[in-house]
Write a protein that binds this DNA or RNA. Structure first.
Length: 361
DNA sequence: AAAGCGTGGCG
DNA sequence: TCGCCAAGCTT
């Protein structure tokens, strides 16, 4: 097998590249704060989905010092709906670290950037190249796919050795090409030409040297292990209101999805089909909630909430709890309108939208 | 080192 | 409908 001519790959790639083919508000921006913010938002997230969040964060927090000074709950609220909420928690940690330990300035090297929470190899390389002109290549999903196809390389991409292997390939491909341009070009190329599902091979400028295309293996590459099956879960939310129509909520703290987001009291059960009486029989039923004082007011239709590794059936059970008095620690009694001030999982905001339409709440 | 972490769009 | 996957990181 002949060795791949990586310098040629780099020349063709940068020859194809035009910044305006895929406009993004942060493209060409060299401000480390905005580069970092955009890269965190775009981790495992499509540009179209992240874009409004970027605008919102920049407007709310123009500088890293503004962000560092923000309350946790406010940042989580801004992040609401974007998913992977550890990014928001780490965003704040990193902003505070920059302010407190780095005098308000982002580290200007790949290694320095890696010390920030939420900044891994990809993000450090992106910031180092875009904001500080460091000669480092990014390795993201696009790069894996493009290189695996171009080189016809069946090395699995989701293992330690595989990542190291493709890092060496992209390093070779980068060569002396200015890294900011190369990195932007290869990611745009992956988004516009060498796409996962419907790659534009007939019009691809790299087609004449693409080994996957020559061997008709484009759709088999890159190789990755098969995804495990989804965990099934069933959530029963208790929507408890007092005589004034106030709600009971609390913040999720456990190592699980939606940490630091707010929700109604939750019972997780082995099934979705539970009547109120069966609900109260569960071991999980909270001691502080006297079943005799509750007046059942109906339940929602089931919601199916799909996550990458879980499918969650969710039902909201409405109860009137007129004597709602002393609350357990960490539970909040709030007005209906105050709900909007808390960061909520998507399934809960969807329920609230729907129940507003049906006038249930 | 593998598993866990959200949400939405697309074929 | 369903699985894949999108500018990954942490533990």
């Amino acid at each position: 097998m002949d060795k791949v001519d990586w310098p040629l790959f780099g020349r063709k790639l940068t020859g194809w590249y035009r910044p305006d083919r895929r406009p993004m508000p942060w493209k060409g921006d060299r401000n480390p704060y905005r580069v970092w913010l955009s890269e965190i938002i775009l981790q495992q997230t499509r540009v179209a989905q992240g874009l409004p969040y970027f605008e919102r964060f920049v407007a709310a927090y123009p500088t890293v010092a503004d962000l560092a000074a923000a309350p946790d709950a406010e940042v989580m609220k801004h992040w609401e709906g974007l998913g992977y909420y550890s990014r928001a928690r780490n965003l704040l940690k990193a902003a505070r670290k920059v302010v407190e330990q780095y005098d308000g300035r982002f580290p200007a090297t790949y290694e320095g950037l890696l010390t920030l929470p939420g900044v891994g190899p990809y993000t450090a390389a992106a910031i180092a190249s875009f904001a500080f002109d460091r000669q480092v290549a990014v390795l993201d999903g696009n790069v894996f796919r493009i290189l695996a196809r171009y080189a016809g390389d069946p090395t699995p991409i989701d293992t330690g050795p595989g990542k190291k292997h493709f890092q060496s390939l992209v390093d070779a491909a980068l060569g002396d090409t200015p890294a900011a341009t190369f990195n932007q070009a290869i990611m745009d190329f992956g988004a516009l030409v060498c796409t996962p599902k419907a790659p534009q091979c007939p019009s691809c400028p790299l087609a004449d040297r693409c080994r996957a295309l020559a061997q008709d293996r484009v759709y088999e590459l890159p190789v990755k292990g098969k995804s495990g099956k989804r965990r099934e879960r069933f959530f029963h939310y208790l929507v408890l209101t007092d005589e004034a129509g106030r709600f009971l909520i609390h913040r999720r703290e456990e190592r699980d999805i939606w940490r630091q987001l707010y929700q109604f009291p939750l019972l997780e059960a082995p099934t979705l089909d539970l009547r109120p009486a069966a609900l109260m029989e569960l071991d999980e039923w909270p001691d502080w909630l006297p079943a005799a004082e509750l007046h059942y007011e109906g339940r929602s239709t089931p919601f199916l909430h799909q996550l990458t590794h879980q499918r969650i059936g969710v039902i909201f059970h409405r109860f009137r709890w007129s004597t709602m008095g002393q609350l357990p620690a960490h539970y909040l009694r709030i007005e209906r309108w105050e709900l909007e001030r808390y960061a909520l999982p998507r399934v809960i905001t969807r329920y609230l939208e729907e129940s507003r339409l049906t006038l249930d709440l």
